[in-house]
């Protein structure tokens, strides 16, 4: 767990934005939408597992439930 995950997410965001721009300029907007969706799903999977870990940690730390 470190700062690198923030950089990773930002990199994925910038990359998908660039790919989206190129594809939509080339007239392939449906593939561009799919690229957007793929990027979002990848990042969401990373963040969701982290949030689950956070809740487990909070439960342990504060003796909840």
């Amino acid at each position: 767990m470190g700062v690198e995950i923030i950089f990773k997410i930002a990199a994925i965001g910038i990359l998908t934005t660039v790919i989206n721009q190129i594809l939509s300029h080339a007239g392939k907007s449906e593939i561009a939408t799919l690229t957007n969706l793929a990027g979002l799903v990848i990042v969401l999977a990373m963040v969701l597992s982290m949030i689950g870990e956070l809740f487990e940690n909070v439960k342990l730390l504060f003796n909840l439930f």
Partner: peptide
Amino acid sequence: SILKNSRSDFSLLINICGGLI
């Protein structure tokens, strides 16, 4: 803030990650 204008969904996720870290 770099990603806020182009992709607001990613900027939200970055914020969440920062809070978690």
